[in-house]
Design a protein around this nucleic acid. Structure first.
Lengths: 182, 182
DNA sequence: CTATGCCTTCGAGCGCGCTCGAAGGCAAAA
DNA sequence: TTTTGCCTTCGAGCGCGCTCGAAGGCATAG
């Protein structure tokens, strides 16, 4: 992970085909049977992020981690569960800043539950908006693909005719279709 | 627009409620009746991006723009259509690098159509993966919200009881439910 | 004649989220 | 005993996509 926009990185984090992330999610799904303690390498592997990133999250105040006799990090189940949460939220587009805010609420005690809910609800709405946006884009791109030829295969040549004016703009019909009633 | 991750910025680009972006999209939908030429301010307004960003895209080689007698940019309909396309692709998460590649293919001529299709198809799949990811996250966040209390309203206090162990981790059942068969 | 306002180019700076390298500690293996 | 390997801290650096400011040009308004 090393680029820029959350989006870009989030997209990259998905890997190239999906299988990688599916594996990671399956591993994440087993929150019930976590070992009592884990090393940084084990947690990194579990969450599919680098040890560097784990240390970074700790520095950022998102999680506290104990040390053993050698000064090595020892992640207990609570820390791991929190990191699972943090990783999920990062993947869904929540910023480090917002996560820091949220965690500060959690650490402040039960009376911050309403405010935590506000944060979650707002983030939920953000995710919904983003999904709508992407769905719109998807429709447009799909339309453009079918307009270009409908297949990536060898019969694409047949469409050289339609390529006179260079077709960088997406046609507007699909967008019109894709626009929700709202 | 000024942050980092594509995602973050993309999310921000949506504004706080959606109305702004909806307006922008409506404006974008009218590709048919574009004026013959536009100024940088008009294009910026149309696309809901800053003149700075438009100049940046030009510097990046994504579009060529003529000048008038005063050296001011004059965007013709083709340039605007291309910028509409570019903006849409940016919003859907395509990187500047990939857009530069795509545009180089467009400018190389009609024989690159198959390769352009490959790019589009790959991007389509990326969008699909991202939507799946976000849908998963959405389910998890929604579950967490209902677990916390189901409403953000005043009756939230009733849930102070469940907050003993700090609830940073998302429960695994919703993720299990959300995991697609694939 | 100034002033306002929008435009130009150029290069530097920013914010985010990592990502990396240096310098060193401890422990089990050879 | 040396080597291998994984860990530690700390601070710097990177890649991306803007974003901004300085310094100046031209034109219309007052």
């Amino acid at each position: 992970m090393a680029t820029d926009d959350l989006m870009t990185r989030a997209l990259e984090a998905l890997g190239d085909d999906g299988p990688l992330s599916v594996e990671a999610i399956h591993r994440l799904a087993d929150l019930a049977d976590l070992p009592e303690t884990m090393t940084i390498a084990e947690v990194a592997d579990l969450l599919d992020i680098s040890p560097h990133t784990l240390r970074y999250y700790e520095r950022a105040g998102l999680v506290e981690v104990a040390r053993d006799g050698n000064g090595h990090r020892v992640y207990d189940a609570e820390a791991v569960r929190r990191l699972v949460f943090l990783t999920r939220m990062r993947l869904s587009g929540m910023s480090m800043r917002d996560l820091q805010h949220y965690i500060s609420l959690v650490d402040a005690g039960g009376h911050t539950v309403p405010e935590r809910l506000d944060v979650l609800v707002e983030h939920r709405d953000t995710i919904r908006r983003r999904i709508r946006e992407l769905t719109l884009s998807l429709t447009a791109v799909e339309y453009k693909i079918t307009t270009y030829g409908g297949s990536t295969g060898p019969d694409v040549q047949a469409f050289g005719t339609t390529t006179g004016t260079d077709r960088t703009a997406l046609p507007d019909e699909p967008l019109r279709r894709a626009l929700p009633a709202e």
